[in-house]
Design a protein around this nucleic acid. Sequence first.
RNA 1: GGAGGCGUGGUGUAGACGGCCUAACACGCAUGCCUGUCACGCAUGAGAACACGGGUUCGAAUCCCGUCGCCUCCGCCA
Length: 579
Amino acid sequence: MISSGRTHYAAEVNDTMIGQQVRLAGWVHHRRDHGGLIFIDLRDRTGLIQIVCEPDNAGFDVAYRVRSEYVLGVTGVVRARPEGMVNAELASGQVEVVPSEVILYATAKTPPFNVTDAKLVDETLRLKYRYLDLRRPELTANLILRDRSLMAIRQFFHRHGFLDVETPALARSTPEGARDFLVPTRIKPGHFYALPQSPQIFKQLLMVGGLDRYYQIAKVFRDEDLRADRQPEFTQIDVEMSFVDQEQVLDLMESMLHDLFKAVLGERLERFERMTWHDAMRLYGSDKPDLRSGPPLCTLTDVARTLDWPVLREAQAVVGFTLRNYRPSRRELDQWGQQARELGANGLLWLVHETDGLRTSASKFLSSQDLARLADAAGSEPGDAVLIVAGQGWHPYEVAGQLRLSFARQAGRVEPGWRFLWVTEFPLFEWSEEEGRFVSAHHPFTRPVSEDEVLLESNPAQVRSQAYDVVLNGIELASGSLRIYQPELQARVFDVLGLSRDEAQAKFGFLLEAFQYGAPPHGGIAFGLDRLLMLMAGADSIRDVIAFPKTARGTDPLMDAPSTVDPSQLRDVHLEIRK
RNA sequence: GGAGGCGUGGUGUAGACGGCCUAACACGCAUGCCUGUCACGCAUGAGAACACGGGUUCGAAUCCCGUCGCCUCCGCCA
């Protein structure tokens, strides 16, 4: 079970093993020298165990010289700790090991930061010495969580008849979507591979290939700016299935997550909630609502129509939300007002609902009757406050949705728990102002809702898609759809996207051609594994669940990547750096 | 591309109303003492010119400008 250098890990040694000889190996976590009696806390990936050296023990001389992070092999006998000396914090705290031999495998320089200290140091330094950072129990635990999760996920898919198929990392650049990482090659001057943003097209081709059920734990790459939950390379749980409807995909993926949480965290999840995209926008001003952060928004447009104040009366949409039982300070109201303006709103209207009446930022413009009607429509009661945003389209919803999240965080009203949600019926297209055309909301292979197909040419903005997202606590975890498998329908969608037949042929011809040889109805989904693990681990950034992540600027302080290359390498791939 | 925050011994922080700072505290490190500790204890000691460059000033860690690095957010991420 364990290689010859040791018989047990630290956390495995316990009071059932008293009198037994064990071989342990690990790093010196702490050394406590009592002058003649030396304790060493030996650390491996499972935890700590106390080694006790008295002057007549073998290995005392080694123990005497040992410093933090030295690497030791210890052979010795397990014994019970004396009365009252048990350490309840340690798995092995009932016992200690008296060595008969201590091997010093390696000495260590004093580390640039304290591995044993829970206090976090500068992240760049941690990344530069990531191998030291990984020794910290939290990070070790996160990687163990990652391993356990991958195991549970693979078992689930295996059990359900999925095949793990690898797809190329050297693929071709496709239009739409994120910026590609390009890979030049000796073989064809001026031509580039692209690293996949997702295995999307390959998995669809696998369905045409009759593989029926595919999954892959796939590395994918996007050359875009980074965030706490975005890295230039990250891992997807990529899934595709043939001959399924949306309901079957949702059901199966939900049970995958149920299994995962049960197996790894011992958590029993509730059935996921469901919401259409339209409702998500209307009720939360977001396509990834955080259901933990208090009550939804309310649309006040109808009431606003009846008011005297033109700013509200003539606004296309008026949206409010109620701060239950909360009396905001002037400063908070100003701050939210500023946030609203930063998000592009013209302003923020607030009402504070006192027991003896309503205070408002717009007392000059709204009669007390009007105020009462607004407050009433927002469902507010004495002791509450209401924030109201007016504007066009979904914008006031989005602003109000942001304010809702800010308020919940500030006021400590984010409830604990795992609030999973399926968001469905995303629009098929979004209008892109900068490109002056419709672009795919999900991707160009997404299947429209059947009854909306007739609207493709007449009213593309109204077409709903058979696309769905998994949202957990306000974070998008997965995104998927049923795909188009009829070449004619695909051609119509390309038309809406403004992709000419020739362009479509040039860029996706291979896919269109494949669909002419008998494509099954199919659909799938892709999970952001790192985000999922981040939430499971309670981490603030996906960097904490990735062994060797990059900084927010995309650099790797450990290897110092990206780097310049030798001119001869550039010549090989027919590139010249523009000065 | 934009906004904000941060950058002080090995680490984490304090100092920031400019002079009391030839920079403080804790951890770590070194040396010594200590046979039951587990963030061991005690004593002694070494270690930074305050990210870098420029400016203001009699005088700058402390004010101003720029550069670099890191973090967060917006844009971007089908």
